[in-house]
């Protein structure tokens, strides 16, 4: 079970963030999340799982090329942030993350106990 919660407050301070557009799909064994975070590198990315909350935070260093001035902009340079509430069907210890071309892919494995099991029917 995955639910989204976006909260802007951080230590009671209001903070403007960019919310990465996200695709989530489910298979019998896992949930896969794909988040668009252009410009993010591995060292600027923080993924935490605490209690029932999966938090993804990407720190954006505002781009400032030397001796150049920003003349026109169609996007804002805030940090990326998104939070999901995760059900207890997800194994906390088996979360993997890959980053490619500005897209973060998270794979959350389900617990063995919730994976569907085929129950054989004995015919007498």
């Amino acid at each position: 079970m995955l639910k989204e919660m976006v909260k802007k407050e951080n230590n009671s301070r209001e903070e403007r963030v960019l919310v990465p557009l996200t695709d989530i799909y489910e298979t019998t064994d896992q949930y896969t999340l794909k988040l668009e975070m252009p410009g993010i590198t591995k060292d600027k990315l923080e993924i935490t799982m605490e209690n029932d909350e999966l938090e993804i935070r990407g720190t954006v260093d505002p781009y400032k090329p030397e001796s150049k001035e920003l003349k026109y902009s169609e996007f804002s340079q805030y940090d990326y942030f998104r939070r999901f509430t995760v059900g207890n069907d997800i194994d906390r210890d088996k979360i993997s993350a890959t980053l490619e071309d500005g897209v973060l892919t998270l794979v959350l494995q389900k617990h063995e106990s919730v994976k569907p099991r085929k129950i054989s029917i004995n015919v007498h």
Binding site: R16, V17, V19, P20, E36, E74, F75, Y78
Partner: peptide, 16 residues
């Protein structure tokens, strides 16, 4: 809130 890639009234891709 701003969603990445969803700035209103702008063609993809957003640029500066």
């Amino acid at each position: 809130n701003d969603y990445t890639g969803r700035w209103r009234g702008r063609e993809f891709p957003n640029m500066e």
